[in-house]
Amino acid sequence: MEMNKKNMLNRLKRAEGQLRGIQKMVEEDQECIDIVTQLSAVRSSINSMMGIAIAQKVKACIEEPSDDPSLQEARLEEAIKLIIKK
């Protein structure tokens, strides 16, 4: 489940490449359904990465709790906001 910086960058570069491919598809007037299919794949990839990043944040809050209860609560609230935002 843990994702390191290198893996995150690789996923982002892959998504960037997919987006460039979609731009080319639009320029070449390819079928709308094909473009939407590729856009959906990019969105799914980004959503997956967001979920992994949020899970890491929550895991860190649990595994490395703050000694200060108000700080721990703030950290958990931040993680919850990320989940809601997603």
Rank of each mutant, 00 (worst) to 15 (best):
N10P: 01
S70M: 10
R20P: 03
Q18S: 14
A53F: 06
E78F: 03
K6Q: 12
I83M: 15
A41D: 08
Q56P: 01
S45M: 10
R20K: 15
M49W: 00
N47I: 01
L76M: 13
D29S: 13
S66H: 04
N7T: 15
D67S: 14
E27K: 13
K5C: 05
L39T: 03
Q38C: 03
K57R: 12
I22M: 10
I83E: 07
R43E: 10
K86R: 14
A15P: 00
R43L: 08
Q23G: 15
D34N: 09
P69G: 01
N47R: 08
V36H: 04
A55K: 07
L9E: 12
K86P: 03
K85D: 14
L76P: 00
V26I: 15
E27F: 07
I83Y: 10
A41L: 11
S44N: 09
G17V: 06
K81V: 08
L76H: 00
L76E: 03
R14N: 13
I46T: 01
S45A: 14
I52C: 01
L39H: 03
A79Y: 04
Q38P: 02
E28Y: 05
Q23I: 13
N4W: 04
Q30R: 14
L39Y: 02
R75Q: 13
K81C: 07
G51P: 00
Q18L: 11
M1S: 13
Q72I: 02
M1F: 12
I52Q: 06
N47Y: 03
N10R: 13
A55V: 00
E78Q: 10
C61E: 04
L9I: 15
I83T: 09
M8L: 14
S66A: 12
K13R: 14
Q23P: 01
C61F: 03
Q72D: 04
L12R: 07
M49T: 12
Q72W: 02
E78H: 11
I22N: 02
A55D: 12
E27A: 14
P69L: 05
R75N: 11
N10E: 15
E28I: 05
I33F: 05
M25G: 04
E27L: 11
L9M: 12
S70G: 00
P65I: 02
M8Q: 10
G21N: 13
R14I: 06
N7W: 04
R43Y: 06
L19M: 15
L19V: 15
E31D: 12
Q56N: 08
E2F: 08
M49R: 02
Q72H: 10
M3S: 08
L39E: 02
K86E: 15
V42N: 02
L82C: 09
T37W: 01
A79G: 06
E78N: 11
G21A: 10
